[in-house]
Amino acid sequence: MLDLSLFRYPRFVGVQLLAAAPAYAFVVLLILLPVRFVGIEGMSEIGAGRMMVALSAPLLVLPIAAGLLTRWFSPATICGTGLIISAAGLFWLSHLAAGSAPFVLIGPLLTIGVGISLPWGLMDGLAVSVVPKERAGMATGIFSTTRVAGEGVALAIVSAVLSALIQSKLGEHAAMAAQQLVTGNLAAAASNVPAIGHDALIQSYGDAFSTLLWLLTGITVLTAAVVFSFLGRSSASAVAEDAEQPGEEEDTMRASNA
């Protein structure tokens, strides 16, 4: 159903990585942070919602601004810079312990939201502009599949990694408690491991969450480098790639006929 030959285009590969980047640099936080704020730190639901506005609000404006910036900067520069900004926000957030004052968290949350908003506004256009026009429909299908599947896979993997990190802090016999902490059920976790104090559970969760954010920071920086490299190819190289592909397909057809 999917034309995998499109992955011969380096710029197309870069766009697929760009489609997956928001999944682990932004979307997973939409699930994990409210759980942390309400279930672990005891924040009210309204208070947690207000905190999430800092993360999401930039998406209302900056994608449009990213489109305007293409007049002066290449899409590769804008997208790569946005991911680096998002990685900086993740790294900043990783240094804030669980239970930090809400106003302290606004800075890193805004930074993550600002960073991810820049490539967000360009991804859809890039998905069809990096392949020949006659293959734009297939490119859109692959892009949408990568984007949606990436979010589900990223959430599953990140949740499993967070659970494993918490368990490594609590000990090998606290697997159930680790899973309950991931879902924000602090009371159930405390009843499962009564020997471990309430404060120790929160500390273990905070340390594991920080480690997870370090991992996400590294992945986001690596993605930014690859995206900048692949999407930053010169226009001349891009034209040459587009011209070579039909020739390769004709050679394949000739070989099949022979």
Rank of each mutant, 00 (worst) to 15 (best):
A160K: 03
G206T: 04
G137W: 11
A154H: 03
Y205T: 03
L212A: 03
T183G: 07
S144D: 04
G197K: 09
M176W: 06
A174L: 04
G232S: 05
A200D: 15
S163M: 15
H173M: 01
A187E: 00
L213Y: 05
L216W: 01
V239K: 04
S229F: 15
L162D: 06
A189K: 01
A200L: 15
T145W: 01
D207H: 02
F228N: 07
V161M: 11
G232Q: 03
G141K: 01
V193F: 09
Q179D: 12
G232L: 01
A188N: 09
T140S: 14
A240R: 13
S210T: 10
V161F: 04
D207N: 03
I142E: 06
N192Q: 15
A156D: 12
H173E: 14
T223H: 10
G152P: 07
L186W: 02
L165V: 06
D207Y: 00
G247L: 07
A175H: 05
A136D: 15
A189V: 07
T183A: 14
G206E: 00
A236S: 07
R233G: 06
E151G: 01
T145G: 04
A164L: 08
T220W: 05
S237Y: 10
G152S: 15
A177D: 15
A200V: 13
E134C: 04
L155I: 10
L155G: 11
S144G: 02
T146F: 10
I202K: 13
A187V: 08
A164K: 06
Q179E: 09
G247A: 10
A187M: 00
G184S: 11
A208M: 02
S229K: 07
T183N: 11
T252S: 10
T146Y: 11
S191E: 13
G197V: 08
I196Y: 06
F228G: 12
E151T: 05
G206I: 02
A189D: 04
V182P: 00
S191M: 10
L213C: 05
I202T: 12
E151D: 02
E241D: 14
L155M: 13
L162Q: 10
I219V: 09
R135L: 15
V239G: 04
G232R: 10
A238D: 05
L201M: 12
A225K: 05
G206A: 15
Q179S: 11
A175W: 01
D242Q: 14
G184L: 09
H198S: 09
A175S: 15
A200Q: 15
A200W: 12
T220M: 02
E249W: 11
A178I: 03
E250V: 04
S191P: 06
P194D: 07
V148L: 13
Q179G: 13
F143Q: 03
A195K: 03
G171R: 00
A156L: 14
G150W: 04
G141W: 02
S237H: 09
Q245V: 02
L215R: 05
V239A: 11
G184R: 11
I166Y: 08
V226C: 01
G150M: 06
S191V: 07
E241Q: 09
G247D: 05
G152R: 01
Q203Y: 12
I196G: 03
Q179K: 09
A190G: 13
V227P: 05
H198D: 15
L213S: 13
V161E: 09
Q167S: 06
I219N: 04
G184P: 13
A177L: 13
A149G: 13
Q245M: 09
T217N: 06
A164M: 03
E248Q: 07
L216N: 01
